[in-house]
Design a protein around this nucleic acid. Structure first.
Lengths: 211, 211
DNA sequence: AGCCAAATCCCCCTTTTTGAGGGATTATTT
DNA sequence: AAATAATCCCTCAAAAAGGGGGATTTGGCT
């Protein structure tokens, strides 16, 4: 079976003309990669995306008009099979998570080399998830729990169950302890976290990554 | 200012003798990197870690005796400044997240090239978070929401608040709608998700990544 | 051996919340 | 015209939450 190498169709959405033209030139210089169109805003791009049929969209996160992150769901609706690779200058922690939850497949900084960009494009097409090192750092850090939690092991376990929406009686049953024990733990948790409600306990614990 | 290149001290904890010796040989072959000790289990390693003073520990996740993930917090207690790099053969989604939440700084597959391993060691020492491509994929996928949620936008917003531990009355206040409206939405959510409690709604929604 | 923190369990009490059963009205979109 | 989404209304009983006061037992560390 001879396998014809498929051309990978790329669309750029980036307001900076220099970057836009630079990337277009660089990507078009690669065999098997073609920039089918480059737009300076999401609004400009939207009406053409279905005709462009891109495999990958390189999307700037800081755009005039509609923001890059807001554009993701709209783009996904128009062309659901297209992978979205975010491009950014500043690594904003919040923006990274918003973009990822909304469906971006990867996250690159604009200073990446052509080689890295091309690699990343290939990687998303192959179902991967390219990230620049700084973004990886932000993501992994978000997983790390605070090692200086004031809560004991048991208290942490219980608060995690509470955060999963479980009632105290359910927690008691599942942990094979008495309801009164659960109540005691929760009382102690509230004192330690200086809160007076489930909501605030969860909020406080999540903010400080105790859970 | 002349900067003396600091030797990077590496400890290996890996039960497979071939891999252990291979990695030791390879890492010692690099200038500025030294394997100060290599152990076949966490139990063996624990008593020596404080003397070894490693900058980085390469930790196998599938170990006899104490599991790699359980070892992380213990190691962190002994030598808090040491970075932990997980090594794995199989990418188990659950294990990845457990390791990361417990404090691992990176996650590599054992088939990685020497170059990648060395790069990763340097990267964690520099405060980075190296991940093999497959692990990155798992992590990013975990952020993606299901695009086929049966819930409406408003219902999703409300269920997110519920999952944050908020009471219905609090949600009503914060969203500037009546308590009765919140109750209606939650009733509809329960019907759509085919559940009869907050706990099950949250569980179902999280399992399917509706929230 | 002695201490302390952690985990367990036992009462009291009031207020709030939840879940379930019925609805209705108004926009918006198809 | 017909769904769909979002809003609001009423009743009801059972469950849960939060706060107050305790006690006992266990495990780990000095």
């Amino acid at each position: 079976m001879t396998e014809a190498k498929k051309q990978i169709r790329v669309v750029l959405i980036e307001d900076d003309e220099t970057i836009r033209e630079g990337f277009t030139y660089l990507i078009n210089g690669e065999p098997n990669y073609a920039v089918v169109n480059a737009y300076s805003s999401v609004e400009d791009a939207m009406p053409h995306l279905q005709a462009d049929k891109p495999d990958v969209i390189l999307l700037d996160i800081e755009l005039p008009g509609m923001k890059g992150t807001d554009a993701i769901p709209k783009i996904k609706t128009l062309v659901p099979k297209t992978f979205i690779l975010m491009l950014t200058v500043y690594e904003n922690e919040e923006a990274v998570f918003v973009a990822l939850t909304k469906g971006a497949s990867g996250y690159l900084t604009k200073n990446s080399s052509t080689e890295k960009i091309i690699d990343a494009i290939q990687e998303v097409v192959d179902g991967g998830a390219p990230m620049s090192t700084n973004v990886a750092k932000i993501v992994i850090k978000s997983f790390h729990k605070n090692q200086n939690s004031p809560l004991t092991k048991r208290e942490t376990e219980i608060l995690e169950q509470v955060a999963n929406g479980k009632s105290r009686s359910k927690i008691a049953k599942e942990m094979f302890i008495d309801l009164e024990t659960v109540k005691s733990h929760i009382k102690n948790i509230y004192v330690k976290l200086n809160v007076h409600s489930r909501e605030d306990a969860i909020k406080e614990a999540k903010n400080n990554k105790y859970i």
